[in-house]
Amino acid sequence: MFSDWLRAPFWIEVENWPISWEIGGTWLFPFIESIHVITIAMVVGSILFVDLRLLGLAAMRYSIRELARELIPWTWGAFVFAAITGLGMFITRAASHVLNPAFQWKMVLLILAGANMAWFHLRIYRRLDEQALSAASNLQLKVIGALSLALWSGVVLAGRWVGHVV
């Protein structure tokens, strides 16, 4: 059923939207792609030092709460631009992307990275007070930090791989 959905004529229709032709056939595509690369680097770069702090590897003089409060909004802000530009590129070749294993991996890893962030936010960031958050010996914090690093790196790798499959 899911594989039928991936082969639905809808994806061809998406490719034939006027805006898809406009992006795919003009300077807009390279422009959008360069914004995509910059914003993804910002997504990963802004969350990086939160992850490293969770692992106890960097920025130890700052509390986890402080770092997360000031850095994660940059992650989200950059992510919004990465998602919009990503969608802009996706619609130019929607039918082939949904069947591209690298693209499918990227979407799965993206969902897992988001779930990991939700886990951190709901189970850790909101519940624990400043002192408990600073106790870096917490194994749960290290797992979240390591998962975040691995999943976001995976998103970058799978995303780069999309272009090598198409």
């Binding site: 993804i40 910002m42 770069g45 990086l48 970058v156």
Partner: peptide, 13 residues
């Protein structure tokens, strides 16, 4: 690209 991410997380920040 991950190297560029570190550039973003360090000097750009």
């Amino acid at each position: 690209i991950l190297g560029i991410a570190v550039v973003m997380g360090s000097i750009v920040m």
